[in-house]
């Protein structure tokens, strides 16, 4: 085959161009740290990367849901524990009311205060929403006389694609349904004021039943917290696995890329030297 000087320079040029192109690509990989910088680098890989990012995005959202839910559970637990403390005091008053008849007016006063406190606690808020109002979260669920104005809405916390934690903590269920604590306290106060010790003692049983009910509610809430913590650690684990998977698909092996770059640079330099040797000589240099 006849090889003209143009054949030589064309092939030198196209080889150098191709080599430069590869070096540029490798440099992009190293600079971005990513194996897939655009869809055409690995089309199927890009689809999988996007699907995985979507999954990760919803997993992270579930974690945010759990954080929100835990905040609510903390508020519920603290509130109900305080209610419990006040009720212990009320039971104490019932137990000792008979011993000290002079004190009954003072005790009646204290029971009134306890009742007031429990109403206030039942009207507790978290971020402007009433905790025990069902879905009617914008208005205080309990009036001063213990009337419930909320509804029976429950609170749902999505902790996975198909699993959720449900908190049924509307005011009616917690404070009135089993035993109406406001009614009990009101009757206790009236009995103390009128010095009717039989009436006072008759409040002991409903009070105990209510406290037992409250324990159950708190236990249920505690159970929800366990459920969320389990979900959270499952999510942590899953997110970690998915992130590793994503990194495997998306991220470049730097060692490999740097080695490739070095090799490509060497080849490029060799090609340049060869090009110099190929393009330089011509018969012209040897004539005369």
């Amino acid at each position: 085959m006849r090889v003209t000087h143009q054949t030589g320079s064309e092939s030198v040029l196209s080889n150098l161009r191709r080599q430069r192109g590869q070096i540029l690509k490798t440099q992009e990989t190293i600079a971005s740290g990513k194996r897939v910088n655009r869809a055409s680098d690995d089309p199927r890989g890009m689809s999988r990367i996007l699907d995985t990012r979507q999954l990760l995005s919803s997993l992270n959202q579930y974690q945010r849901n759990i954080t929100q839910g835990e905040l609510r559970i903390d508020a519920l637990e603290t509130t109900l524990a305080t209610v419990d403390d006040f009720l212990a005091r009320a039971r104490n008053i019932v137990a000792h009311a008979g011993q000290d008849t002079d004190m009954q007016a003072v005790l009646a006063d204290e029971v009134a205060k306890i009742r007031e406190q429990v109403v206030q606690l039942a009207n507790n808020r978290l971020n402007d929403t009433y905790l025990f109002a069902g879905n009617n979260t914008a208005t205080a669920p309990f009036l001063g006389d213990g009337t419930y104005t909320g509804d029976s809405g429950s609170y749902h916390i999505r902790v996975g694609q198909t699993s959720e934690v449900v908190l049924q903590v509307d005011g009616n269920t917690v404070f009135k349904d089993t035993e109406d604590i406001f009614l009990i306290l009101e009757e206790l106060q009236i009995a103390l004021e009128s010095g009717d010790s039989v009436q006072v003692q008759s409040q002991a049983a409903p009070l105990a039943r209510f406290q037992e009910h409250l324990q159950n509610v708190r236990a249920e809430i505690g159970g929800s917290r366990d459920q969320m913590e389990t979900s959270a650690s499952y999510l942590d684990n899953f997110i970690h696995k998915m992130e590793t998977y994503l990194a495997d698909m998306e991220e470049a092996d730097l060692t490999e890329a740097v080695l490739a770059l070095q090799l490509q640079n060497t080849v490029y330099e060799a090609a340049l030297v060869a090009a110099g040797d190929l393009l330089q000589p011509s018969l012209l240099q040897f004539l005369r």
Binding site: A39, S40, P43, M46, S47, L50, Q54
Partner: peptide, 10 residues
């Protein structure tokens, strides 16, 4: 959507 992006890439 991700399969659309994949198809453009391929």
């Amino acid at each position: 959507y991700s399969s659309l992006v994949g198809d453009i890439g391929s």
